[in-house]
């Protein structure tokens, strides 16, 4: 009698424990979805010792190519953002060395006509 009561108790406890282990919070799905959409985290690549890497390894080459592409995009957007953030109204453009710069004129100005 004692044994069967103990068995039932242990079984109930085991079932309750397993239920709490497997049942997870609904937000886990949202976290997983967000992780799938996340950009490549190349910070871990920057910490690696390049001299110890085997650059013939396709995994290394693939990671390098992806992070290099990401870095190029990041640099481009930083440069663009830096230029856009400048206050052009307060600048004296006549004092700027414009000789080696290519001017990108808006399309409307190319259609300028002299009558």
């Amino acid at each position: 009698m004692n044994t069967s009561i103990r068995s039932i108790f242990i079984l109930t406890l085991a079932l309750a424990t397993s239920a709490t282990v497997w049942a997870h919070d609904p937000t886990e799905h949202a976290k997983e979805a967000a992780a799938k959409k996340a950009k490549a985290d190349c910070s871990s690549m920057q910490k690696m010792d390049m001299s110890k890497m085997n650059m013939d390894d396709p995994v290394m080459q693939a990671m390098h190519s992806k992070c290099a592409k990401q870095m190029a995009l990041k640099n481009k957007s930083t440069k663009d953002a830096g230029h856009e953030n400048m206050n052009h109204d307060n600048m004296d453009h006549s004092k700027m060395p414009m000789g080696d710069m290519k001017m990108h004129m808006p399309e409307s100005s190319t259609a300028h006509q002299h009558n």
């Binding site: 959409k37 996340a38 950009k39 490549a40 985290d41 190349c42 871990s44 690549m45 995994v59 693939a62 990671m63 992806k66 992070c67 592409k69 990401q70 995009l73």
Partner: peptide, 16 residues
Amino acid sequence: MLTPEQYQILTAPEEG
């Protein structure tokens, strides 16, 4: 053979 960090970099969607 991949570490979690390598997996993340290789599988992340291309930027843009």
